[in-house]
Design a protein around this nucleic acid. Structure first.
Lengths: 201, 201
DNA sequence: AGTTTTTTATGACAGGTGTCATAAAAAAAA
DNA sequence: TTTTTTTTATGACACCTGTCATAAAAAACT
């Protein structure tokens, strides 16, 4: 019997997955969680064989849970189930050594098969994503450019960045400008977006 | 037997819903669609009793389908199933006289019950949303302010808006400024966002 | 060691963005 | 009709944003 914990904030999908997994003879859903913290608690409490983690959840993301599980050397296998094919997410998932990364665009049967596969110790990846890994670009940004972009990401204005990093107004804008050009976009918002997508900041 | 068409672009959820609805004795899923056009074709072909429409789909949104169905006086009952509780979406759904508006945060059983209810001619609304309708603010924008915001929404720069509406540079920025203030935000992007959310542009 | 390349830093510049004071025109109220 | 209010319009102002030319400092290469 494969014991599974499901963490997914959208009730309809969570309920549907649970109902369908229960129909499988070899799978048992031991707990459901609607947010990251609840998911963590459930995994600690039930020590399931496999956990399905959505990435974008309240209080703790699925990726954070995966990292923490790795840190405490918990043996629960992790399958990330997400809408997003962002290279940044995928990279973080690989760094956290997750056992599977599936898109919600896959059919349920694929998920069920994936649960059995990871239980056997195999790794599972949505087909589209294998290509995404090869297409991954290298980070063209310097340390300083990333610093500035990171602060800009938090919604800081140029002036606030200036006083945080002890630079002049012009210098900060200069880093942003070169980041914008290197990322081949035209505004700082787009630069933040792209850098975030690729897991560079 | 209640004949149902399901339109939802996310395969995992679509498949899960179909599987679960098939378990109900009085419901039959006659077709699935992964995008708006396919959904429209399926509804035309099968003339189901009820159709479940996601809003954000490729090629045609669920709201557009609902409007078109109303225009051609098709008798299929419409249930919108969406992640978003935006007042603007809800308003458009009401204008299109849909029979139900459910959030994906509802449990499946609620959806199943909703299908039976609308088939009987009743209307169904997610509980949180009833309140949203009362909280709806009135549109504080003038005709001209909406014109400008609409063009800004399409990504036009101030200059492009100027030559489209035959105004001066200053005037356009003035409309944007007053719109920004009326909407109690600080940038044109936020103004566009809020006006869109409320269905004002 | 010296040379080249990359990174870090600065300020000047052009252009965009939002606010303001002001006023004519149109609509509503008296 | 006159007065008041609202809408539409303008240009001036301060500030923000992205680019550029330029240069010192650091790192990599010969």
């Amino acid at each position: 019997m494969i014991r599974v914990v499901i963490a997914e904030d959208q009730k309809m999908l969570r309920g549907a997955l649970t109902s369908l997994l229960k129909l499988e003879d070899d799978i048992e859903v031991v707990a459901e969680a609607a947010d990251g913290l609840a998911a963590w608690d459930a995994i600690m409490k039930y020590q399931p064989d496999v956990c399905l983690l959505d990435i974008e959840m309240p209080s703790m993301s699925g990726l954070e849970i995966a990292e923490k599980l790795k840190q405490v050397k918990n043996m629960t296998r992790v399958i990330i189930v997400t809408t997003f094919a962002r290279p940044g997410y995928l990279q973080k998932a690989i760094d956290a050594q997750v056992d599977g990364y599936l898109l919600k665009d896959e059919p349920i049967d694929f998920l069920i098969e994936a649960i059995r596969s990871v239980k056997r110790g195999e790794r599972v990846l949505s087909t589209d994503l294998a290509a995404a890994l090869f297409l991954k670009e290298v980070n063209p940004l310097t340390e300083r450019e990333m610093d500035v972009l990171r602060l800009a990401k938090e919604g800081m204005t140029t002036r606030e960045i200036v006083s945080t990093l002890f630079l002049t107004d012009g210098t900060v804008r200069n880093y942003l400008s070169s980041a914008i050009q290197k990322l081949e976009v035209t505004t700082r918002q787009q630069a933040i977006e792209k850098a975030k997508n690729n897991g560079w900041i």
